[in-house]
Nucleic acid binder design. Structure first.
Length: 365
DNA sequence: GATCCGTGGTA
DNA sequence: TTACCAAGGAT
């Protein structure tokens, strides 16, 4: 990969790329200015998430938490709710934790040194490079999937971009490109090119400002790159969930644990079931053991599928009737449906809640 | 270094 | 329908 670098006229590459970027860059909310906090929030939201998905979340989030101070002093529940549906929820818990550190230790100023900023929770090599270059014009590489795809093609590299070693190679060669360029412009230009032209499938080589620098294009192998190992199919799990209401019309909800999948989110009580025929028994036993609630499981109400990148839940939702319930139990709350909507749920349980509300309103007529 | 961690869109 | 993808980080 390093040898291929010598074939490139870096000066012209920069000019061709940057002038294209100036003409074609999208007008995105986080490009209004170079405020480090605004840039930081955008970079965290954009991790593994498309621009179109992020935009509405970003606008709401910045309105609700416009400064590091506002985010630092916010309740975790409200911050989680603002992230509901975006996925990878540890991102937002790490972000709030990091922002609290910035307020406590740096007077609310996002640190501009690589060492200090990188030490914050949720800030890895990409995010550090992106924020320091975009907000502070530091000549730091910001190697994401776009950058690896673009340069795999430019340099005709067949190294697996799924490997950490490959990312480090790109990081080591990028400073040569950043030299004498405006770091903010250059890094964003590469990512913009990856998003708009040098796309994963059917790249728009004829529209590409750097097509004459591209070795994959010269060899006609751009569609074969980048190389990335295939992932295994997600495992499937049968789940049973229950809607359990008391006399006051309150429903039982459970808060998931501190770590792991969907950490800290709220959900209807649920269990994994091996044999589908025994879901009712498994559920009622689970309710008894976990919450000390004696309940009879009634009819199936709904089926919901929840597809993760590495897992699929097939959830069967039941109605439950309380026979006996304790005053209080750990990690759960009895909530009205209006109260429940203030909490963050996984998308599958959002669907269950929505359907429950619709059924209730239909009864109301 | 491999696996876990979400979600919605697309071919 | 299945498979893969998208501005990664933590463990």
């Amino acid at each position: 990969m390093e040898q291929q670098l010598e074939n490139i006229d870096i000066k012209r590459f920069q000019q061709d790329l940057i002038s294209w970027y100036e003409d074609h860059k999208r007008d995105l909310p986080w490009r209004q200015n170079q405020d480090p906090y605004r840039v930081w929030v955008s970079e965290v939201m954009l991790q593994q998430t498309k621009v179109d998905t992020v935009i509405p979340y970003y606008n709401r989030f910045m309105q609700q938490f416009p400064t590091p101070q506002k985010l630092a002093e916010a309740d975790e529940e409200d911050v989680m709710k603002a992230w509901e549906g975006l996925g990878y929820y540890s991102r937002v818990r790490n972000l709030q934790s990091a922002v609290r550190e910035v307020v406590a230790d740096y007077g609310g100023e996002v640190p501009s040194s690589k060492k200090a900023f990188s030490s914050l929770k949720g800030v890895g090599p990409y995010t550090a490079g992106a924020v320091l270059s975009i907000a502070y014009e530091k000549p730091e590489p910001a190697v994401d999937g776009n950058v690896m795809r673009v340069f795999s093609r430019i340099l005709l590299s067949r190294e697996d971009i799924g490997k950490a070693k490959t990312r480090k190679k790109f990081e080591s060669l990028l400073p040569a490109f950043l030299n004498d360029a405006k770091p903010s412009q250059f890094n964003q230009a590469v990512m913009e090119l990856g998003a708009l032209v040098c796309t994963p499938t059917s790249p728009g080589c004829l529209l590409c400002p750097v097509q004459y620098h591209c070795m994959a294009r010269a060899e006609g192998v751009q569609e074969e790159l980048p190389v990335k190992e295939k992932k295994k199919a997600p495992a499937k799990k049968e789940m049973a969930a229950v809607i359990l209401c008391d006399q006051q019309g309150k429903t039982l909800f459970h808060q998931r644990g501190e770590s792991g999948l969907l950490a800290r989110l709220w959900e209807y009580p649920n269990v994994e079931t091996k044999q589908k025929g025994e879901q009712k028994d498994t559920l009622s036993q689970f309710l008894k053991n976990t919450y000390g609630v004696q309940a009879k499981i009634g009819n199936k109400v709904q089926k919901v599928q929840h597809v993760f990148s590495h897992l699929i839940w097939n959830i069967t939702v039941y109605e439950g009737m309380i026979e006996e319930a304790p005053e209080h139990s750990q990690d759960c709350k009895w909530l009205t449906l209006e109260e429940a909507q203030k909490y963050a749920f996984p998308v599958s349980h959002q669907k269950i809640l929505k359907a429950q509300i619709e059924r209730r309103d239909a009864e109301w007529n």
